[in-house]
Structures are given as C-alpha cells and as structure tokens.
Amino acid sequence: EPEARKIVEKLINNGLSPEDVKRWAEKNNNPEVKKAAEEYQKR
C-alpha cells in the first residue's frame, strides 16, 4: 500500500519512531499503516 508507506515516512520525518507510528496506527485503527511501519523497520 504506497499511500500507507507515504504516511509512515511522513510521520517518521516528523520525528516519530516506527514504534510510535505503529501505536498511532493502532489508535487510529489503521492496519495498513501499521503494516507499512513494520515493513519500514525491516529495511
């Protein structure tokens, strides 16, 4: 999901860690963003 990846990169560029992004995604019920954050961590 390229859109989710863009969101993850934007949040990380704004100073969030991938863990923060995953928590944000869970709080906002956004499994695509959570998955993208996990993939981002593996890179």
Score class of each variant (00 low, 15 high):
E1F: 10
E1I: 12
E1H: 10
E1S: 12
E1A: 12
E1T: 11
P2Y: 15
P2W: 15
P2H: 15
P2D: 15
P2T: 15
P2L: 15
P2E: 15
P2R: 15
E3I: 07
E3T: 10
E3G: 09
E3K: 05
E3D: 14
E3V: 08
E3C: 09
A4V: 06
A4R: 02
A4I: 07
A4F: 06
A4D: 03
A4H: 05
A4P: 07
A4Q: 03
R5G: 10
R5V: 14
R5S: 12
R5W: 15
K6L: 12
K6N: 10
K6Q: 12
K6C: 11
K6M: 12
K6H: 11
I7W: 10
I7D: 02
I7N: 02
V8M: 09
V8P: 00
E9Q: 11
E9Y: 09
E9N: 07
E9V: 08
E9H: 08
E9M: 11
E9K: 08
E9T: 05
K10P: 02
K10E: 15
K10R: 13
K10A: 14
K10F: 15
K10N: 12
L11G: 01
L11M: 14
L11V: 00
L11S: 01
I12Y: 04
I12F: 08
I12S: 01
I12V: 07
I12L: 11
I12E: 02
N13T: 09
N13P: 01
N13I: 08
N13F: 11
N14G: 12
N14P: 00
N14W: 14
N14A: 15
N14H: 10
N14T: 10
G15R: 02
G15V: 03
G15Q: 05
G15E: 05
G15T: 03
G15C: 03
G15Y: 02
L16Y: 14
L16K: 04
L16M: 14
L16F: 13
L16R: 04
L16V: 06
L16P: 00
L16W: 15
S17R: 05
S17F: 03
S17L: 05
S17P: 03
S17K: 05
S17Y: 03
P18C: 06
P18N: 03
P18R: 04
P18D: 02
E19S: 06
E19A: 08
E19Q: 07
E19W: 05
E19N: 07
E19L: 07
D20Y: 05
D20G: 06
D20I: 03
D20A: 10
D20N: 04
V21R: 00
V21Y: 00
V21E: 01
V21K: 00
V21L: 04
V21I: 15
V21H: 00
V21F: 01
K22D: 02
K22G: 06
K22Y: 12
K22V: 15
K22I: 15
K22C: 07
R23S: 08
R23Y: 08
R23Q: 12
R23F: 06
R23H: 08
R23W: 07
R23K: 11
W24M: 03
W24Q: 01
W24N: 01
A25W: 01
A25Y: 01
A25D: 00
A25G: 03
A25F: 02
E26G: 02
E26C: 00
E26M: 08
E26S: 04
E26H: 05
E26F: 03
K27V: 12
K27E: 14
K27Y: 10
K27F: 09
K27H: 10
K27L: 14
N28L: 06
N28H: 13
N28Y: 11
N28W: 11
N28F: 10
N28T: 10
N28P: 00
N29R: 07
N29L: 06
N29D: 09
N29A: 07
N29C: 08
N29G: 11
N30P: 00
N30L: 15
N30C: 07
N30D: 07
N30S: 11
N30M: 15
P31F: 09
P31E: 11
P31M: 12
P31Y: 10
P31A: 10
P31D: 10
P31G: 06
E32K: 06
E32A: 14
E32S: 11
E32I: 08
E32R: 06
E32M: 11
E32N: 07
E32L: 11
E32V: 07
E32D: 12
E32W: 11
V33N: 00
V33L: 09
V33R: 01
V33W: 03
V33D: 01
K34L: 15
K34I: 13
K34A: 14
K34E: 07
K34T: 07
K34C: 08
K34V: 13
K35D: 07
K35A: 10
K35S: 08
K35N: 08
K35T: 07
K35Y: 08
K35I: 09
K35W: 09
K35M: 08
A36V: 11
A36Q: 07
A36E: 08
A36G: 02
A36P: 00
A36K: 03
A36S: 05
A36M: 11
A36C: 06
A36N: 02
A37R: 00
A37L: 13
A37F: 06
A37K: 00
A37I: 12
A37G: 02
A37P: 00
A37H: 02
A37Q: 01
E38S: 05
E38F: 05
E38M: 09
E38A: 06
E38P: 00
E38T: 06
E38K: 04
E38H: 05
E39Y: 06
E39Q: 09
E39A: 09
E39L: 09
E39R: 06
Y40K: 01
Y40A: 04
Y40D: 02
Y40L: 08
Y40P: 01
Y40H: 05
Q41S: 10
Q41E: 13
Q41P: 04
Q41Y: 11
Q41F: 12
K42V: 11
K42G: 09
K42F: 10
K42T: 11
K42S: 11
K42I: 12
K42R: 12
R43Y: 14
R43M: 14
R43H: 13
R43G: 10
R43C: 12
R43Q: 14
